[in-house]
Design a protein around this nucleic acid. Structure first.
Lengths: 335, 335
DNA sequence: GTTCATTTTGCAACCGGTTGCAAAAAGGCT
DNA sequence: AGCCTTTTTGCAACCGGTTGCAAAATGAAC
């Protein structure tokens, strides 16, 4: 079916090695044979079989891209940037969807079977141990959007979620809210835990402000909507820090349905600054997570780790920033 | 690094063929050796190398998943469903992002190099010729969300975009709008062309209604916003059929910014029924495209084509349906 | 035209599996 | 036990490449 090395060799009147060498960076071939081979290859439409060569070279240029966040619109951008960035470096993303909760261990075996060169775990909810299992199997791995453990064994690229929690709390304090709440994603998600921890830390330093919390079942519009609806039944807070923009938008929707106004009746601050947050009909005040930098950093890191597998584990954290829009009451006038 | 066939064979005290056969469906192995081999394999943590075996079997179980729609939130769901569905059948999606406009021909070569078993082109904007180039190269291909050409050479799964255009036009007619417009995606997109054609067809049968049209530069929020902003500068129509929900939402945003009301001042109907369309703060009247069926159908079709490569090209089209929400004026009361 | 260093080339073995074939083992029957 | 059929097994070749090594070709220097 496909053209092979041998056919090109025959047509060019050289050995198979000669053909292989013409297509191998930095191999020794004379100008004359190179031209003969290239001509024959062109005429036949030959392209070396990447899988066959991987057998001897040990490199497939395949990168496992694993995620379980297929309900958060921000991840469309994440996939876009990852695939583009990997492609530009000649790497091929093999996508693994962990949403249906198939056994994570199984995905390791799967990617081993396909001898991927490396793995990117793009998830803010998977525990560090998951990424670690790849490293233990000798596969270079980067955990994007992951939790930064102090003595981490794997590369992590992302943000300081604890600091984001603090930042959100401080922002609410500045606005003078007297009763606030944290509306998190799934309690098992490391990102939720950390954002919550940072939030609480600041709140404990401000005991005059009442504070409570609840958790949505997942990072999705519907879950956010359900959680906020529950809040509205009992006594809602004056302002909420939602653990993610998509939750915020679900919450906004619940608030609108209840006939309440934002930020008049209830204030809201999200996290991520996803595309929809700036849509005029949403206009969400939020904390921006620098997606592009996180992804570029992740790709850069996995690429370097392919060259140098025993590279010391590293954490790259990027600063976040409050984006002022229309879902929090304005700062009180300066005295 | 990794455990190989040979090591398992030695430990189990059998030949390499015996080991290979234990892991090959339907090969002849006695119960006794199978057990010996399985024991040895388990102890060593052996997994056959999928790439190596693909060399002889000619099957990689890799499926190229190609798209250029990384700015339309609907595609997050598309990727979710595709990856899940493929995984369930033991197929692995190799993702190719055509957004950065890299040469389409290059992506064919790339996927040939990785000897994918088949290809799914998930795009409503790529021309039929693109999918065709894979078929010509002998690679099974399904074009999802593609244009149904009458004598198509490739499998197509999707909707009848022309009929959707008609449906939108009829819906606007029923509401008694006197001046309507089509706000399409990129003019080069087959889906836009077809939706436009259907729309025009009905409008020509209703010459009493004034009608004009314009096109956004791509299927994205921003492009929709820009296009509608331009419309508002000149004399806008009473109601618009937007070629896609994401355009509609951009348009909604432009309308809101101009201080106009929907559906009071301007009516809007979209196409897709993406998740955000039902968010209360958007609440878009739209035409639902049955994503799940399209994707299940695509996967089913590519899987069958792997078995039977010369299967006759087939088109599977699914019906669409108007979803009534809040961006069109209500039907006039019955007389 | 030699001689020697350097580059280019082909041979053959290998990467990790699969598979046709013939020999060996097992099973059935008289 | 002997014969025949069926199943199981290992050998060896192959899939499409790469690569160490030694031989052949080239080029430089004398």
């Amino acid at each position: 079916m496909s053209i092979t090395l041998k056919e090109v060799a025959e047509r060019a009147g050289v050995s198979r090695s000669a053909v292989s060498r013409t297509f191998t960076e930095g191999a020794s071939v004379s100008e004359r044979t190179r031209r003969k081979v290239e001509k024959a290859a062109r005429e036949l439409g030959y392209r070396p079989n990447a899988l066959a060569s991987s057998l001897t070279t040990g490199r497939t240029k395949l990168i496992g891209l694993i995620s379980n966040n297929f309900h958060n619109p921000i991840f469309l951008e994440v996939f876009d940037l990852f695939t583009r960035g990997l492609q530009e470096r000649g790497l091929r993303p093999l996508l693994v969807n962990l949403s249906g909760a198939p056994d994570p261990a199984e995905s390791l075996e799967l990617l081993r079977q396909y001898s991927v060169d490396g793995v990117i775990v793009a998830s803010s909810t998977l525990p560090p141990e998951f990424a670690l299992s790849f490293r233990k199997a000798g596969i270079p791995v980067v955990h994007s959007f992951g939790r930064m453990a102090s003595a981490s064994q794997v590369h992590v690229v992302g943000i300081d979620n604890i600091e984001c929690g603090r930042m959100a709390a401080r922002t609410l304090m500045q606005r003078g809210y007297g009763r606030v709440a944290f509306l998190g994603g799934p309690e098992a998600a490391t990102s939720t835990q950390d954002r919550f921890a940072g939030f609480l830390e600041v709140m404990e330093a401000n005991p005059q402000v009442r504070c409570h919390y609840s958790f949505a079942s997942q990072y999705s519009f519907d879950a956010g909507r359900v959680a906020m609806t529950k809040e509205l039944i009992t006594q809602p807070a004056e302002a909420y820090f939602c653990g993610d923009d998509v939750l915020s938008i679900g919450a906004l929707s619940a608030i609108a349905s209840a006939g309440l106004k934002v930020p008049g009746d209830i204030g809201l601050i999200g996290l991520n600054d996803m595309e929809m947050a700036r849509w005029e009909n949403i206009n969400l005040t939020t904390i921006r997570q620098p997606i592009r930098q996180i992804i570029d950093g992740s790709i850069e890191l996995i690429a370097s780790t392919l060259q140098e597998p025993d590279r010391f584990p590293e954490a790259r954290l990027f600063a976040c920033q409050v984006i002022e829009r229309g879902t929090l009451r304005p700062l009180p006038a300066k005295t």
